[in-house]
């Protein structure tokens, strides 16, 4: 029978969770920078079509 389990220290699993945490932080910062960089151009593209974005 599966009873309650106290988490035990497992370096491999901790690394697994660390990888996901690291990816999340990198994505937050990375997409944030990307948004600042490309956001205005994408807005122009959406509002005025391809021609206005190229101007």
């Amino acid at each position: 029978m599966a009873g309650l389990e106290i988490p035990t220290w497992d370096p491999a699993t901790a690394l697994l969770i660390g990888v996901i945490l690291f990816e999340a932080v990198v994505l937050y910062v990375g997409y944030g920078a990307l948004e600042r960089l490309l956001g205005p151009r994408i807005m122009k593209l959406l509002l005025g079509g391809v021609d206005s974005a190229e101007r």
């Binding site: 988490p7 497992d10 699993t13 901790a14 697994l16 969770i17 990888v19 996901i20 999340a24």
Partner: peptide
């Protein structure tokens, strides 16, 4: 995730690309 990961329940091949798209 840690508890499931200890039981082999977390697959990075699923989580990493899902997160890449969802962020």
């Amino acid at each position: 995730s840690y508890l499931y990961g200890q039981g082999g329940g977390v697959d990075l091949g699923i989580v990493v690309p899902l997160l890449l798209g969802s962020a």
